[in-house]
């Protein structure tokens, strides 16, 4: 923990020093102190912007979870559904979502719904794939056990397949939360009147590069904190899954 912190501090100092020594102009590379000063200038007015982005991230992320889970169960349980749905999903994934984003805004309006939908479209696919993989990679012996015990479909799912897939689900959730942050920024680039993504487009339009830098830093911090909270949830509620991930890695 101490070593990465030291590297970070060293890099920031180097950055500050280089900007001052070489007299780099603000609109090319602002010094860290200048970035902080710009954020400080906005002060509490940052809060609604951070809140707006966080709301979009969480809405898109939750939609991914809520839609992926039943879809993953359906795909993993029925070869027919898998064959019917997978090619369509692949097409939606091969299409750059950022290209559809303006169309979505026309269809869904300029509000929160559009932003959440764009975020969802960017975040859900890797999560779905991890969930399907997890459900299909139940150990062969556990499948046999389930059959010998004559479990019903729901018992098999609830007692055996879902718990067995938890490590996969969490690696999918970690990817999905990072993608949700990206998705939210993309959405705000396309349509927003507040948010950190909106701050970036607005500030760069007026060559206020220090504020753009500040927004990016806030986004990184948000991303790290969200990622870590997923890690924390896994540690607290599914300690055995963390354990089994470690075992499989060894």
């Amino acid at each position: 923990m101490a070593i990465p912190a030291l590297t970070l501090v060293a890099l920031v100092l180097l950055w500050e020093g280089a900007v001052r020594v070489f007299g780099i102009p603000n609109y090319l590379l602002p010094a860290p102190t200048r970035v902080l000063a710009e954020l400080d200038k906005l002060g509490v007015r940052l809060v609604p912007n951070i809140g707006a982005t966080l709301l979009t991230v969480l809405a898109g992320f939750l939609a991914s979870v809520v839609i992926s889970l039943p879809l993953a169960v359906a795909i993993a349980s029925s070869p027919f559904v898998a064959r019917a749905v997978y090619p369509l999903l692949l097409i939606t994934q091969s299409t750059p979502i950022i290209a559809i984003a303006p169309i979505l805004v026309v269809m869904l309006g300029t509000g929160q719904l559009s932003r959440a939908t764009i975020t969802f479209l960017i975040a859900f696919f890797p999560l779905l794939v991890s969930m399907v993989t997890g459900l299909l990679s139940t150990p062969r012996e556990a499948v046999e056990l389930s059959r010998v015990l004559r479990t019903s479909f729901l018992q098999d799912l609830w007692l055996i397949r879902l718990p067995a897939s938890v490590p996969f689900v969490f690696s999918g959730l970690k990817v999905a939360i990072s993608l949700s942050v990206i998705g939210a920024v993309v959405a705000e680039f396309v349509t927003a009147n507040k948010g950190l993504g909106y701050l970036i487009t607005q500030s760069t339009a007026f060559f206020n590069v220090p504020l753009a830098f500040g927004s990016v830093i806030l986004l990184s911090i948000m991303g790290v904190l969200l990622f870590q909270s997923i890690v924390l949830v896994e540690r607290i509620f599914f300690p055995w899954a963390v354990q089994s991930e470690r075992i499989t890695r060894e």
Binding site: A142, E144, L159, P163, A164, F238, W240, S244
Partner: peptide, 11 residues
């Protein structure tokens, strides 16, 4: 039934 592997659910 007892299997070749213990087949215990690890969670």
């Amino acid at each position: 039934m007892v299997f070749q592997k213990p087949t215990l659910l690890h969670w």
